[in-house]
Amino acid sequence: MNASTTRRNTVKTIVIALGLGTCLTALPAAAQFPESPVTLVLGSTPGSAPDILGRIVAEGMSEVLGQPVVVENRQGANGSIAATQVAQAEPDGYSLMLMTAVHSITPTTRSDLEYDFNEDFRGVGMVASVPLLFVVNNELGTPDMASFVERAREGDIFYSVPGIGSIQQLATEEFADRAGIEMTVVPYRGGGNATNAVIANEVQLFFAGIPPALPHVESGALTALAISTPERSPAAPDVPTMVELGYDGLVADNWHALYVRSETPDDVVATLSEALNTVLARPETAEMFLNVGATPWANSPDEQTAFGHGEVERWRNVIDEQGLTFD
């Protein structure tokens, strides 16, 4: 055999292999989904709350689906790099996206998104809600919401946010408007730095995640005045909701949910939804979620899709009413 035939054979093998590969990927419905690894894309750094929740769910779903579910971090631009990537992937259910509340805010705050949240995606199901604690520094001397609002009327209250256009900023603005007070926003990069600022009393107020804030509430450095979810959290059962305190409809649910492209076939979505809900129903999942400050929350694909549309609507209204601008 001379060199040229060897080369020709190699080329032939490659062509056949490529052809076979194309055929296999072109026939998704023929076999049982999933028959290869599934990617779970998320838009934040390793170690962030969405990342940890995503990895817990991915680990469980790998086992249920019988195929590895691989987490891929594509942080940047408030999660929109990740969403763009999934919006451009094949609508075959192999690219999952972990959306969070911020994805229902960016459609209003950003004019340059390369995808349409409502049109390009459909829900697979809710994963969890991460309640936010309305914490103030103890040196302010306001043990409850009424005294805080009174103190805030005198002015000179700074509040931290993990970034401009974050759910924390919108919720605080909405709260200030309802309570009739004015406060100054001080932006930090990331929730850790923003939490640190309120502990160090550089700012007086922050809508913090439960795990970083709770130990400081217990140590007495911070006071938790309210929680942002519709119901109280089992992680902080003594903290009243904003609704209980008379701020009707003031809910900032930092939700985390799985989405796929809207053209994904129904049976694939059903398989994914079933696997997700199996994982969420396990007590060990619930325990791990609770430990990282999240509340498990399961629903159906259609419920999730409708919920997402509602959230976009809700934050658009808040932004319009508060007259916030972001460029």
Binding site: T45, P46, G47, S48, D51, I52, I56, G192, P211, P212, L214, P215, H216, E218, S219, E287, M288, N291, V292, G293
Partner: peptide, 15 residues
Amino acid sequence: ALMLGALLIHGVQPG
């Protein structure tokens, strides 16, 4: 943050 996460998952709260 990742190391914190590894502790949190087990209910060990750094602070």
